[in-house]
Each structure stands twice: as C-alpha cells, then as structure tokens.
C-alpha cells in the first residue's frame, strides 16, 4: 500500500456526543499530515452535513448570532472537505438508507451517497479503520 489511508465510521448525530468532536479532530489531524481519509457516516451521523443547520443567538446570555459564533457540524464537514479536496483527499459518504429515513438529503457539497458496501471497500483499501459506535 503506497499511500496511507485512514477510514473512520461514525454513527452519532450532531450536537449529542463528544465522540463527534473527536472524530472530526482525527480527520483534521490526518489530513494535515497528508493522509487520505474516508468517512462513512451511518445512522444519525448523516445529519452532520445537513445544509439546513443554522447558527443561533443565545437568549439566556443575551448574545446575538454573531456574538455567539455558534459552530455547526455542517461547517466543520464543509471545511474538512475543502482541506481534503485534492491531495490528501477526504471522501465523505453518507449511508443512503440512513439519509432517506431522516430526510437528510440537503447536504454540503462534496458529500456522497453510498452504502455499507462502500464502507467495506474503503476499509479493505485503507491502512486502518476506526469504528466509533453509538453507545
């Protein structure tokens, strides 16, 4: 295997668990090292890239949208895909059935639709595969 490649499967929906942050940190670190990365988003993780997410103000603190700088997972995914649009490459595949179940069709550019067969192919072609399951 000439070039190193890491495949990560994630399953948690956005804004629920710290595992999502850790997964995105691993993806970012690998890309910055020049490592190709595959992400297979399964179950609720297909919502990470949903375009309809919107930052919000914080009425409890009285802050505006701008002051709050509320991070959205779609922006994290978009920026990682921007880093990984050449070499190293980030391939992000959302499970199609999971997308249909959740109506999570409107996603940021660069996210592909696939199936567990794609995950199997990515895993067999990678240096290593990390599965981050739901609890």
């Amino acid at each position: 295997m000439a070039e190193k490649k890491l495949t990560i499967a994630i399953m948690d929906p956005p804004y629920e668990k710290a595992s999502t942050t850790t997964a995105l940190r691993i993806v970012s670190a690998a890309l910055k090292k020049g490592i190709h990365v595959n992400v297979f988003a399964y179950e609720g993780a297909v919502n990470l890239a949903m375009k309809d997410q919107a930052p919000h103000a914080n009425p409890v603190k009285g802050t505006t949208v701008e002051q709050e700088e509320h991070p959205t997972t779609k922006e994290f995914v978009r920026s990682l895909l921007e880093i990984g649009k050449g070499s190293p490459q980030l391939t992000w595949i959302n499970c199609g059935l999971c997308v249909d179940e959740r109506g999570a069709v409107n996603v940021v550019d660069g996210v592909k639709r696939g199936s567990p067969a794609d995950f199997f192919k990515m895993a067999t072609e990678s240096t290593n595969t990390l599965v981050i399951p739901t609890r």
């Binding site: 190193k4 890491l6 690998a30 090292k33 490592i35 240096t127 290593n128 595969t129 990390l130």
Partner: peptide, 15 residues
Amino acid sequence: IDQLVDLLLRENTRA
C-alpha cells in the same frame, strides 16, 4: 491527536 493518528497508521495495527 496527531500522535493518535500516528498510532492508528502503524502497520498491522488494530484499533
């Protein structure tokens, strides 16, 4: 987290 990536990418490593 960089060190974790290095560990994951060692040959013959199970995560």
